[in-house]
Simulated assay, not measured.
Amino acid sequence: MNTQEFKRLLRWESMLTLVLVIEFVCFANLSPYFLDVWTLSDATFNFTERAVIALPLALLIIAGEIDISVAAIIALASVAMGLGAAAGVQTPGLVAIGLSTGLVAGMINGALVTLGRVPSIVATIGTMTLFRGFAYAVLGDRVLKDYPQSFAKFGQGYATGPLSIELCILIVLAVMFGLFLHITRWGRTIYALGANPTAAKWSGVPVDRYRFLLFAVTGLCSGLSAVLLTSRLGSTRPSIAQGWELEIISMVILGGVSVWGGKGTIPGVLLAAVVLGFVNFGLGLLNVPGIVMSIIVGTLLITVVAIPVLAERWWGRPPRRA
């Protein structure tokens, strides 16, 4: 094996691909239903809605910021759509309500960070409590179910054969974010923001404008995820997407995005979303209890994140993560 092949083997994405292959081999041997095409199609619902948010969140973390409020934005957007549906708003209007609610929530986060100079982790923890609390204050113990039948196609429909509409949306977004981050000048600027924001500012980069837009896009995609999730469930509860923020951040970190900013790739994040999604689905197919699933997923996350440290000790350099 020459040096180039060895480096390619150590790429973060290559490791995630290897983990995914091992997953498929193990679950295919443990369950005769796992490799059924419709079973695999159903498995994609375990990660598509979360991955829709993980893509812009990856850009935000690469830029040196973070958003903890994404799941609470889903709840807020879902409540807004539920109230709209109860008032007789039809499907196009409901989609517009969900997207606009997410966008406004993201802009609020962006304004707190760029104008209010509040650290992003503090600002978004605050808005996480605010948005989720507002959802509970409006609904309480109620459940909103008055959605038009056509609204269900976003979360339950299929574009062709076993290919779901949700998966098609995720693929399109992954291509868009991947091209933006890895091909364009704006993408290179995002890497610069995370690597050295002071140098980027003195180079004439409008740092606050980039940060505000990244928060806004993250909020918009959270609104889109709310549309997909609410459409799939057919109902709205204030507890919708509870705990998703940690799962989404886990996808991003497992995908190779550095928590210190400046490093990461969209293919890595997408692979991490698929890996975690199929782990949860495969364990569920085997009737593994939820607490055991959490332990296994947590162990997988810790193990994979520890690989760069072990590689640096053994070979003198970590796997390339960006």
Rank of each mutant, 00 (worst) to 15 (best):
L167N: 15
V138F: 15
Y136V: 10
E166I: 03
F177H: 03
I97K: 15
I108C: 09
F151G: 07
L139A: 06
G178R: 01
G126R: 15
I171D: 00
M107P: 07
L170P: 05
A159E: 12
A137E: 01
I169R: 13
L163T: 09
V118M: 06
S164M: 04
L170W: 14
A105R: 08
T124A: 01
M107V: 08
L112F: 07
L130Q: 08
I171A: 04
V122Q: 10
L99W: 14
G178S: 04
A135Y: 13
I108Y: 07
F134L: 11
I108H: 06
L112I: 01
G133R: 05
D141W: 02
A152S: 06
G157T: 01
L173V: 04
T184D: 00
R142N: 06
S120Y: 03
Y136K: 15
R185Q: 06
L163D: 11
A135W: 13
L112P: 01
Q156M: 08
T129F: 02
A137C: 02
G133P: 02
G102E: 13
Y136H: 12
N109D: 05
G140E: 05
A137H: 03
G178I: 12
A135S: 11
Q149Y: 12
L181W: 08
F177G: 12
V138H: 15
A152M: 13
A96R: 08
